[in-house]
Computed example of a mutant assay.
Amino acid sequence: MITTESKEKLYQALLERNAEYEGVFFVGVITTGIFCRPTCPARKPKLENCEFYQTAQQALLASYRPCQRCRPLSHPNHETELVRMLVDAVEGNPEKRWKDADLQGLSVDPSTARRHFKKRFGMTFVEYARARRMGVAMKHIRAGDKVIDTQISTGYESSSGFRDAFSRIMGEPPTSNKQTQVLYASWLDTELGPMIAIADEHALYLLEFVDRRGLEKEIERLRFRNNSAIVPGETEPIRLIEQELKEYFTGSLKAFTTPVHFIGTPFQKRVWEQLRNIAFGDKITYTKVAEQIGKPTAFRAVANANGTNQLAIIVPCHRVIREDGNLAGYGGGMHRKRWLLEHEEKRS
């Protein structure tokens, strides 16, 4: 988490074009919609128009596109022609879902693209394209109902192009089908990075870190199972969870009261309800959870249900570990699971 104090230091490094900060941070410029490296030669924005990120992937997911002058997705003066070509290809159609066949159509071997991107900036080409695609939707969510100058912010020739890109991920607004339910999505900044919250007027349906792998599929399942369209906005459950998360991260809240709505099988719902009974600061095994729901041999099914939890932190799947004490996996990333467990242990 980048604090206010550290933002001022990073901004000073940006003004000085301090090469020692290369790889330490990236800066997103709110007024232009681009992100840059610390040594970018472009005119410097005001501090209030800057957002700082520790990785390029975070900047992409926050809706920023890479600067064409400083090329933040490559090492200084060391960008391969392949990387440049693929980045330009993604920028030409940011909402595209890239497949191996698309790369082969460009005469690019998928494994070569994966290796080059991984070597250059720590994520594969598919991860880069996904982050850029999700960033299109996240920009709409962050902006809420504000009118967006899409020609500057996203490179689209019209606002309809931007809306089309958003709707491919979040679903069409329910203008023609009156039976479609409307859900609202908001961007929440937290101690462990931005999260997306989706809710109706009564309950929270989804709370996830925006860089979670498979988030698009989660949103897609939510839309189809609930016959929903998702639009930017706030509801009372979203306002409540935003406040409760702030209190949780400061250590003053140990149990969430935000109403939630589970979408899953009866077995999954049973597991998720049981997970909510794990006390703050405690850890439990998959086998123990299986025993508690009366299915002692179903520990693998419990693990699967644990992995499909769509309400991060509220349904504390991070408190479930293996029999040998291994932390196992976590959809939000192992670094977050460790942080959450340590945070709760200190305050329990």
Rank of each mutant, 00 (worst) to 15 (best):
G135E: 06
L340H: 04
R223C: 13
I238C: 06
E216H: 07
Y11I: 01
M1S: 09
A13I: 01
E218M: 13
H116C: 03
T150H: 10
V126G: 02
E157C: 12
V83R: 03
G264S: 15
R168Q: 14
A129W: 12
I141A: 10
D189A: 06
T55D: 05
E218Q: 15
M138I: 08
A185W: 01
E201S: 09
K295H: 14
P76M: 05
S6L: 13
C40F: 11
W187N: 09
A56Y: 00
G264L: 12
I238D: 01
L103K: 03
M195V: 11
T31N: 13
L188C: 05
R347G: 09
G122S: 13
F125V: 01
G193Q: 08
G264Y: 10
P296A: 09
K283A: 05
V83N: 02
G23A: 02
R71K: 12
E344A: 13
L245P: 03
N227T: 12
I314E: 07
P72C: 02
L188G: 05
G333D: 06
A131K: 02
L207M: 04
F299I: 00
F121Y: 12
A229K: 07
D145G: 08
T180Y: 11
Y286V: 04
E344P: 11
E345I: 00
A312W: 11
V260K: 06
R239H: 14
K254W: 11
T265M: 12
N226T: 14
